[in-house]
Simulated scan of single mutants.
Amino acid sequence: MTDMGDGLVIGTQDIAQKDQLVLRALVRLLDGGVNIRARFSEQLAECNVVFVPSHWPYRFHAPCITVRLLDPADTGAALEQTADLTVATPLRMSNVIAVLQSATQRVHGATQFDPVKGQRALFDLLAERTRTAERRRAVVPVSGGQQIVFDFVQQLVHTSMPLEVLLSGAYTLGEPHRVSPVEEELIRSVPAHSLRHVLWSLAMRLAESRAGAPARPGWYRLLRWPDAIGLSSAGHPRLAALLTSRALSCEQLCAKSGVPEATVRWFLEASLALGLAVEESAPAVAAAAAVAAPVPAAKTPVPAAAPAGWLGNLRERLKLW
């Protein structure tokens, strides 16, 4: 038997000929193209995914095919009764992509992930490409047969993963690549989330977990206020107010705000990634501090005391002070 590693070996049993032909063509087209490793096999004994006729008990249910998940090592026994999936017919690229992604995740199970590592990797990827003004769409494969499409033109994140799963970090990321014609279908068929919302949410979760942020020894200030999501975390409005008034270092910001260091650093990272904050040079910081320094009030001259004697009396009478 050929070893597919973390891939799928797909077969069919008693489904309509037209559906079988479509499935074969789609498997060849999709193999590796949307982070799904799959091949078609005539030998059911080596298949871990088999498309079979659906025997849905309800008369008016939309026509569909059952996708049975098997364990070839156990002579084709079903993994679990609840593991079976369904896919609507006629088969289309979008619904076949979705069902094969789910099958990959269920057949090979969830690996133990480091959530902070996953969150940090996604944040770094978003921050790097946003800072470099990356103005195109990119696909990032995700473990479990999923993928994320980043649209840096429309500032959107497209994925079939629920937002909570995306923010959880329970995955590993693959190497980004340009959107292919096959993946254009994915963009049209899955939910979209605000890229800025995702980046701020990741920054807040990383701050909560006290994840180490890059050391930034310079001075920084805000060019404009963050969006509502960026001000929704405790301490963020205070940090925004301080960085709007003048450039500060991380150490100064921690001391003046009373906000935990992790929150300060991740707030700054998100602000820099989104172009809300800039680093100031040391001379500019010194000049701004000099301008902001209070000017001492001018001393009012005190008139000299009048001499005593007849001259003083004369001045008093003539009001010559």
Rank of each mutant, 00 (worst) to 15 (best):
M1Y: 07
L8Q: 03
L8P: 01
V9G: 05
I10S: 02
T12L: 00
K18G: 12
V22Q: 14
R24L: 09
R28T: 13
L30P: 09
L30Y: 03
D31I: 01
G32Q: 09
R37P: 00
L44F: 00
E46N: 01
E46S: 08
R59H: 04
P63E: 03
C64Y: 04
C64F: 00
L69N: 09
T75G: 06
G76N: 02
G76L: 01
A78C: 10
L79I: 15
E80D: 15
T82E: 10
D84T: 09
T89I: 12
S102I: 03
V107W: 07
F113R: 14
F123A: 01
L126E: 00
A138L: 15
P141K: 02
P141M: 04
P141G: 00
G144L: 02
Q146Y: 04
Q146F: 05
Q147M: 15
I148D: 06
V149L: 14
L156Y: 00
L156N: 02
M161F: 00
S168E: 09
G169N: 11
A170E: 15
Y171K: 00
V179S: 09
E185L: 10
L186Q: 01
V190Q: 12
H193M: 06
S194K: 03
L195Y: 02
L199K: 07
L202M: 11
M204V: 07
A207L: 09
E208R: 14
A211N: 12
A211S: 14
A213Y: 10
A213C: 11
P214K: 08
W225F: 06
W225I: 03
D227A: 14
S232D: 15
A240E: 06
L242C: 01
T244L: 08
S245L: 15
S249N: 00
E251M: 02
L253D: 02
C254M: 05
C254A: 14
A255K: 06
V264W: 07
R265F: 02
F267H: 07
G275C: 09
A277H: 11
S281P: 13
A290W: 03
A292T: 01
V295D: 03
P296T: 04
A298E: 10
V302S: 05
A306K: 08
P307W: 00
W310K: 11
L314F: 14
L318V: 05
L318K: 05
L320W: 12
